[in-house]
Amino acid sequence: MKTIKLSIAAVAALILGLTSCKKEETVTPTPSAVGNGSVSVELSHKFGMMNEQTLAIGSPVVHPMKGDTLTFSKFKYFISNVKFKKADGTYWTESESYHIVDLATPGSLKLNFSDLPAGTYTQMEYTIGVDSARNVSGAQTGALSSTNDMYWDWNSGYIMLKAEGTYKDNKADKMFAFHLGGFSGADNIVTKRTMVFEGATALTVTKDQTSTVGVEVNPGLLWHSAPSVKTLNMVHMPGAAAKLMALGDGGLGFFANPMYSFQVKSVK
């Protein structure tokens, strides 16, 4: 008996030793008996109370609450750490999961995930922004490369959202530039979210096929709590203003709004 206890302790310690330092869960997509398929999450950007305006680079949109007429020249943000949860509770986790969604680059509006085991998925978990670990770990590659111009070098950290363009102020065109970031302490705007697939938008992954999830994104929520651009037209560091836009009062800003900033509209 004693022998068994001791060996169990030893084995447990051994396992602990082997697993305790793993940085993140790595789920190796094991080709299951049912095979693997793909999911493409297609983001279409909207503006307005009912998502009635289409947001595109260079075309003016009107903010429903603040009345501002905004023409975006740049709109980019990070989506990261994507995981799909299966009906049986298991997860498929994307490795090196960092994506820049860039309104000026049509290809970036489709997030493609391949090699998911076939089956029914109930939700996608993801993060808007870049987790704090990658903000403090030195030089990175891919979406996190410094060549993407989404990094503050003088105050180390990722710019998690960049929105630039012009607005009308008494017929004059003026510039706005919002660079939102902040990954630690009170300045943290990194937001974990969940997209639920149920009912009419249930998600089934089928062997060798691509399921398409249509999502409407409404960046107008940046101004849910933030004042009109006529009052605040520039944010260029972490802090209260960045939080107001990203998180908003009561968590109703663009990064955090549970209902309206990212809405699943269709699954095909």
Binding site: L6, S7, A10, V11, A13, L14, L16, G17, L18, S20
Partner: peptide
């Protein structure tokens, strides 16, 4: 010894 070894492994691995 085995336990000791396992624990050492645990300690050094981090």
């Amino acid at each position: 010894i085995l336990i000791l070894f396992a624990f050492t492994l645990f300690l050094v691995s981090c």
